[in-house]
Design a protein around this nucleic acid. Structure first.
Length: 870
DNA sequence: GTAGCTAGCGCC
DNA sequence: AAAGGGCGCTAGCTAC
């Protein structure tokens, strides 16, 4: 084996290879040093020798570097603050020799930073490689730099000299790898080295296959399901060690070879850049994807890792308070709904109100499946719930773990639901999403208010229901949810009566349940209950997606007192369009505006105690501006040039009667002065619905939405929707032309390009008609827009990231949310920094002015929290 | 007990 | 025949 095993000492385990490779861990067995093994001095000396050799002879070479990592659950935990490096592997080509004179040549380096039994051994060896890792002049190639970078930082090592990330290179070349064709080292080397057995060896076997062990069963035999033991255990296991070193050292070699082959592929592809952008960035004809990588994505890779490292400070006290309030609100809403439900379906006392299946059962029992009319939602369905109260059934001695209960519809046992599903899931069952429930319940709060205003003593009618013994089981969980005598519901109403009730509902803002329950108190109660159910779900989402996980320690690092505070998501270039995505946690989907009812964004704060604040800056209408630019749409360009409310201008261009009103001075497009009132109404108030339609169209059309879809959204006829769409295009013929050209492009060549010439492959666009083709053709018109917006954001961030003055002032990028960036820095220089940030964003391409046909407008705020910056 | 699916929903 | 692009995450449920 042409490997130099360098040295020894520290705890340890495993490396994720990026994207989801499941690696469960088998129970840890105690480690014992094999007899006769000596580690320590010798390994450290060898490490020093090799590090010295690199510094003296191989400093100008590019090294592929890889690590194995222990003590981390890569599915849940951020590598910032979690994980220890067990070994390093290095490779810089075959024409080197790390061996001592007289030894066989050694070209692959494998460095044991774990040691055999003494943590100090490994730490000492790692220390010998600090200079190499931190030397900015030695360029390093990584496969998923982010992970290794953060874990090395857990040892106090800050790698520098970032040269390339083979994952980003592979993404740039082809963003559509899926399933087994992933971006893992195994998969990529397997594909790019077809037929080369020396490189391919790894593509066939995963770490789990090689080192996995069946968990021991009770009888002492190995089970069938393989589990990966902790990496430190494998690495120290005398029987596995050699195989492990072989495996792990190969990663660096594979990364190196992959880099070479990907670079060649990228160099072989000339890209089409938007001409003014090419001019601004000095990108000459013949510019290749490799040039693109070097100019944009390589430095971007480094920047993203710095952002991840910086992390966002989170105010956990604020979240804890939000949690208490949210839980109280949710409890109230849940009870309100569940009392109503269990009055009609006794078993509903046991139900889980956040279960889609159970809600479907209550509201839609007995209805047909839209895809397969021979299937119906059973009249009664059994569910289980945890037996938390330890209820013991009659004749039994022990409490069962679960209580089984059967739900029928709220209209009574064996009664088919009178509701017509207005929306179905892809599998054909009635959807119970918020829009559906909302249409059943009516306007938020309306029914409940009406209920409280009823003249008789039945204000708290739901609370007054007579309790009865439930023959079906216990209701110890919450006595307030005890079953009640189901009120009689008269379902035998005439169509005339129904029509009257429906009109009454429409007039008052009640939902469809009002008529379905025969109106009156019963109808109002049903609406109010489902209204409450909507609230339960909304609060549930806020709690389980945001408020709770943000308080965990999996994604946080700790402050000097050891208190978790900064949150480090991972920022990935892993989308089809070139947008970023954020994971663990996803900080790009935190609730905003009115959805943020517990002010989660207030928890994202600057380090105020240390004199910091935030700058939040975002592009206004970035995608629409880029559409105007690439399509060279006169009307849109003009509208942006004139400024003001873009959607109002769109409405103005679409409807003659609005134009008339404006021309006659009956209405104003906008009013700048906030201190005074406009003399006549504003367009956005006078023609609210027209403006709303224009706004929806502005967004939808870029996504390729059809008249059919719009008709559903607007709840209008297909003809009317078609007419609206035609109106939109009538004012913007260039957009239609451009979209057709893009579709044609995709159909003919199988790809489309963004502003800077990134390509998205769309092979399905070249196939004959199918569902997949439809999707590809919509992507063909959306990707150049969404992808170009991503290009602009990338270029702007690079400009911000390398701005010398911003650095001097101490400003750091923390997060990007597609068209928005967040920075943190010292309060006293906030205004100066803000100007710079805005300038970088408005002139993202090498700082050149007026590159695009349309100006890029940026609005920004300085505030201590994300919430306040909006 | 876990894996994979379905449904739903947060953001731009 | 379907009918708006791009993401990540959670929960419930079923099948293994």
């Amino acid at each position: 084996m042409e490997q130099s095993t360098v040295a020894a000492a520290q705890p340890a385990l495993q490396e994720e290879e990026l994207e989801e490779q499941e690696q469960e861990q088998a129970p840890r067995t105690p480690y014992r040093t094999p007899p006769g093994t000596t580690f320590g001095q010798r390994e450290r000396q060898e490490a020093a020798r090799v590090a010295q050799l690199i510094a003296s002879q191989y400093q100008s070479r590019w090294f592929a570097v890889d690590t194995e990592v222990s003590d981390i659950d890569v599915k849940k935990e951020s590598p910032c603050g979690h994980g220890r490096v067990t070994c390093l592997s290095l490779y810089c080509g075959d024409n080197v020799n790390f061996a001592l004179p007289g030894e066989a040549p050694k070209r692959q380096l494998w460095v044991d930073t774990l040691g055999m039994d003494d943590e100090e051994e490994g730490a000492a060896v790692m220390e010998e490689f600090r200079v190499f890792l931190e030397d900015p002049s030695i360029r390093k190639i990584w496969h998923n730099y982010s992970f290794d970078r953060h874990v090395l930082a857990n040892h106090g090592i800050v790698p520098r000299g970032f040269g390339a990330d083979t994952i980003h290179m592979a993404r740039l070349l082809d963003s559509s790898r899926r399933g087994t064709k992933s971006y893992s080292l195994e998969s990529l080397t397997g594909d790019y080295f077809k037929g080369d057995s020396t490189i391919q060896q790894r593509s066939k076997t995963s770490m789990k296959e090689l080192f996995g062990k069946g968990a021991l069963k009770k009888d002492g035999t190995e089970g069938k399901v393989k589990k990966l033991p902790p990496i430190d255990e494998i690495q120290r296991d005398p029987e596995q060690r050699e195989k492990f070193i072989d495996y792990s050292a190969f990663d660096a070699k594979a990364t190196f070879k992959l880099y070479e082959v990907l670079r060649e592929h990228l160099q072989g592809r000339v890209c089409q850049i938007n001409p003014p952008v090419a001019l601004a960035c000095n990108m000459r004809p013949g510019w290749t994807m490799w040039d693109l990588y070097e100019k944009f994505w390589q430095p971007f890779g480094g920047l993203l890792v710095d952002m991840e490292r910086a992390g966002m400070l989170v105010d956990r006290d604020h979240l804890a308070a939000a949690q208490i309030q949210a839980e109280a609100d949710q409890q109230e809403a849940r009870r309100f709904f569940q009392r109503w439900a269990s009055a009609r379906v006794p078993a509903a006392q046991h139900m889980n109100v956040t279960s889609v299946a159970q809600i479907q059962q209550l509201l839609f029992a007995g209805v047909q499946n839209a895809k397969d009319p021979t299937c119906i939602l059973e009249p009664g369905r059994k569910f289980k719930t945890a037996n938390v109260d330890g209820f013991i059934e009659e004749g039994k001695k022990l409490a069962r773990k679960h209580i089984e209960f059967e739900l029928h519809g709220v209209w009574g046992p064996n009664k088919k639901s009178p509701l017509k599903p207005e929306q179905v899931t892809p599998t054909g069952w009635p959807a119970v999403s918020v829009p559906v429930l909302r249409s059943l319940a009516g306007k938020p709060g309306t029914a409940r208010k009406a209920l409280s205003e009823l003249p008789d003593s039945s204000i708290s009618s739901v609370d007054d229901i007579d309790l009865v013994e439930d023959p079906e089981g216990p209701w110890l969980n919450d006595p307030e949810l005890a079953p009640a005598k189901a009120p009689m519901v008269n379902l035998e109403v005439t169509t005339a009566e129904t029509a009257k009730l429906e009109a009454e509902a429409a007039e008052n803002g009640y939902g469809k349940l009002y008529a379905a329950f025969g109106g009156g108190k019963d109808g109002l109660e049903a609406c109010a209950a489902v209204d409450a159910l909507c609230n339960v779900g909304a609060i549930d989402t806020l709690l389980s997606n945001f408020i709770l996980p943000l308080q965990g320690s999996e994604v946080a690092t700790r402050d000097v007192q050891g208190k978790p505070n900064r949150i480090h998501c991972s920022l990935n270039i892993n989308t089809e369009t070139g947008r970023l995505s954020a994971r663990r946690p996803n900080l790009q989907n935190q609730p905003a505006m009115e959805k943020d009812r517990y002010k989660v964004r207030k928890a994202f704060t600057a380090d105020i105690a240390n004199g910091n604040t935030l700058i939040v800056a975002d592009y206004s209408q970035l995608e629409l501006r880029l559409l105007a630019h690439v399509a060279e749409c006169k009307s849109m360009l003009e509208a942006f040039k004139l400024g003001g409310d873009f959607h109002s201008r769109t409405a103005l261009g679409m409807y003659d009667h609005i134009k008339e009103a404006i021309d006659q001075g009956k209405c104003l497009l906008e009013w700048e002065d906030p201190t005074s009132k406009p003399p006549v109404p504003l367009l956005k108030d006078m023609f609210k619905s027209e403006r709303q339609k224009a706004k929806v169209l502005n967004f939808s059309i870029a996504y390729g939405k059809t008249a059919h879809g719009l008709a559903q959204d607007f709840k209008t006829s297909l003809d009317e929707a078609k007419q609206t769409v035609e109106r939109w295009y009538a004012d913007r013929p260039e957009v239609l032309k451009w979209q057709q050209a893009q579709r044609m492009n995709a159909t003919k060549h199988g790809f489309v390009s963004t502003l800077i010439g990134r390509q998205r492959q769309l092979p399905d666009a070249m196939t004959s008609s199918s569902k997949a083709k439809g999707h590809a053709l919509r992507a063909a018109i959306n990707t150049p827009i969404q992808g170009s917006a991503a290009d602009v954001a990338t270029a702007a961030m690079l400009a911000i990231g390398r701005h010398q003055r911003l650095r001097e002032l101490g400003w750091t990028l923390l997060l990007q949310v597609h068209d928005e960036v967040i920075l943190e820095g010292p309060k006293e220089s906030a205004e100066e920094a803000q100007k710079i940030v805005v300038d970088c964003m408005e002139n993202p391409f090498d700082g050149k002015r007026d590159v695009l046909e349309v100006a890029l407008e940026v609005s920004s705020n300085i505030a201590d929290t994300w919430y306040e910056a909006k």
